[in-house]
Structures are given as structure tokens and as C-alpha cells.
């Protein structure tokens, strides 16, 4: 298979996953804003920082306001992570790899793009926001379903899966980091009701409340939430789960091709980290620092995969 095709599949899947996760980030911000304690929390600024799209926004709009941030993250063509840009990116990559995906997958991607172009053609009002965010999630679920149901389990599928889980790991890490950026009124508020509400919101935004309850009961404890989102082997959005999937798929490629590359060593090391550090060690080290290091390791791995499988010249 062409290196370019492998890259196209990888980025098609990453972009789709990103569109969904950007929608989740917006939902997180909206919920935190709706449940805040009244005074001056800067939840929208935190969302921008966690999504790493702050500087671009600041250059264009200055101070973050609810409407401007939501528009920036949903529709702005200057924001490479906006839902619209991500969906366009997914579709144009799908066009490039048209011969490597099934007709079902292509049509799912194409209709996702058509529907979202319509839905995002103009500013989304606060009242319409939940419906639009749902639509984004549903459309990306349809594509995932088409991929799952119709693609051969071969190298094409492997590259798409690697893209999906790389992006999801990246986004879960960023969503956890939102909590770092959302300021509490004072240090005294750690462990307060507000603190807990924010943690719960993080859970909700990764569709993790139910799963968390089953594993840890009704009590919201930050350490257990982090454990759930970083280490849980059953939670399909946890860092450990996502990296495990990336490792599996990279290993399938190694078996098929009969060759291992530096990216295989990197993913092993990353998975080892999750296995060897428990959540107390993470909090002792500093959750934010830990997340930042994970993000940078993921970025390095992505670049290594591009080189090892010759996505570009």
C-alpha cells in the first residue's frame, strides 16, 4: 500500500475523532459554565488552553467570550481543530484514499461532511447547540460503524485504527487537563462541592459517568476519576486503553510486514509508563506535568509513525 494512502487513512480517522472530541470539549465548557459558582471563572479560556488553540483565538478575538469560543471551535476555518475543519480534513483525506476504503465508509464520511456543512453554515445559537453537538457525535459514530462493519481487517484498517486511538488519547489527555486550567476560587476549594462538580463534568464529557459508577460507585473522587481516565483497561477512552490499541495495531503491521520500527519501541515505552505508575505517583509528580509529558510523547510517536511508514517523502 502507498505510504500516502497509509497517511490518508491515519489522518482521516484522526480528523473524525477530533471532530467528535472538539464537540465533547465544547460540551464540557458549556456544562462548567452553567454550573459555576457565580463569580469570575474563566472556563472558556480554560477550554481554549486545554485544546491548545488559545493563541490563534486570542490573535483573532482577544478576550474569550462564550459565543466567540464556541464559534471558533465549531466553525472557524482559521482554527485547524474546529469541527468544520476537522470534518473537511476527514473528507479530503477520504477522497485521497478512496481506493482503500469501502463505498460504505466513503458515503458515511461524505454524508457526515454534507450534514455538518449544512448544520454549521451559520452561527449556532445556544438553544441549538445540544442538537448540533449530538449530530456531530452521531455522524462520527456512523463512520466508525461503517468502518467496523465493512472494512477488511488489513493494513488499511490498522492505520485508520492507529489514527483513531492516537487522536482519542490526545483528546482524553486534554480533557483531563481542562481541570488544571479551570481555576477554583481559592486553594481552599479543593475537594469542595464545586471541585467535585467540575470533575463530574470531565467524566460526562467522555461519556464516562456510567462506567465510573459501575467501577467506583457513586462517590466522586478525583484520584479515582484520574485512575479511570488514565489507567482503566475497560474504559475505551482511557489513555491506557487507547495506547494499548495503538500498540496492538502497530504490532499487526509489524507481523504483516515482518519488520519492526522505532515507533514500536516508543509505543512500548508509553504503555510501560501506564503500567508502572499508579495514580498516587501521578498526583505526587503533578497531574498537569504528567499530562503534558504524555501529550508530548504522543506527538513524538505520531511523527515517528509518519516516518516509519513513509507517509511523506
Amino acid at each position: 500500500m502507498l505510504g500516502k494512502t497509509a497517511g490518508g487513512l491515519y489522518w482521516m480517522a484522526r480528523n473524525l475523532e477530533r471532530s467528535e472530541n472538539t464537540a465533547r470539549m465544547i460540551e464540557t465548557g458549556q456544562r462548567i459554565a452553567l454550573t459555576r459558582a457565580g463569580d469570575t471563572t474563566d472556563e472558556w479560556g480554560s477550554i481554549l488552553r486545554a485544546a491548545a488553540v488559545g493563541p490563534g483565538f486570542a490573535a483573532k478575538h482577544g478576550e474569550p467570550t462564550r459565543d466567540a469560543v464556541i464559534d471558533w471551535m465549531l466553525r472557524d476555518k482559521d482554527n485547524p481543530s474546529s469541527v468544520l475543519r476537522a470534518v473537511e480534513g476527514a473528507r479530503s483525506n477520504a477522497r485521497v484514499v478512496r481506493t482503500a476504503i469501502t463505498e460504505d465508509v466513503w458515503e458515511a464520511v461524505n454524508s457526515c461532511w454534507m450534514r455538518l456543512c449544512d448544520a454549521l453554515a451559520r452561527k449556532v445559537s445556544e438553544r441549538d447547540l445540544p442538537r448540533v453537538l449530538d449530530l456531530i457525535r452521531h455522524r462520527s459514530a456512523l463512520v466508525r460503524g461503517a468502518m467496523h462493519g465493512t472494512m477488511l481487517r488489513n493494513e488499511c484498517y490498522d492505520f485508520a485504527r492507529i489514527g483513531t486511538f492516537m487522536e482519542r488519547a490526545d483528546n482524553t489527555a486534554r480533557i483531563i487537563d481542562v481541570k488544571y486550567y479551570v481555576l477554583l476560587p481559592s486553594a481552599m476549594a479543593v475537594g469542595s462541592r464545586l471541585d467535585n462538580v467540575q470533575w463530574e463534568t470531565i467524566l460526562r464529557s467522555v461519556s464516562g459517568e456510567g462506567g465510573y459508577r459501575m467501577s467506583y460507585g457513586h462517590q466522586v473522587r478525583p484520584r479515582e476519576i484520574v485512575k479511570f481516565l488514565v489507567h482503566d483497561r475497560q474504559m475505551p477512552r482511557s489513555l491506557s486503553f487507547c495506547c494499548g490499541k495503538v500498540r496492538d495495531n502497530l504490532n499487526y503491521l509489524a507481523t504483516d510486514y515482518g519488520a519492526r520500527h522505532p515507533c514500536h519501541d516508543q509505543i512500548e515505552a508509553l504503555c510501560q509508563r501506564f503500567a508502572s505508575q499508579d495514580v498516587d505517583a501521578i498526583f505526587d509528580y503533578g497531574l498537569h506535568e504528567y499530562i503534558q509529558e504524555t501529550l508530548s510523547a504522543l506527538g513524538g510517536l505520531s511523527r515517528q509513525i509518519e516516518v516509519d511508514y513513509r507517509f511523506y517523502e
Partner: peptide, 22 residues
């Protein structure tokens, strides 16, 4: 068959070859 663009191809050992993942 594969769909290629110019930048997927180069001349290698007297043949036109496409850059694959391998």
C-alpha cells in the same frame, strides 16, 4: 489498483517505483 500522484513516484534502479509503506 493503486491511485498515485507524482510525489508518490520516483525512478529507482531504472524503473518507476511507488513509495509504499514498505
Amino acid at each position: 489498483v493503486e491511485l498515485v500522484e507524482g510525489h508518490d513516484l520516483r525512478v529507482v534502479d531504472g524503473r518507476v517505483a511507488m513509495r509504499t509503506t514498505q
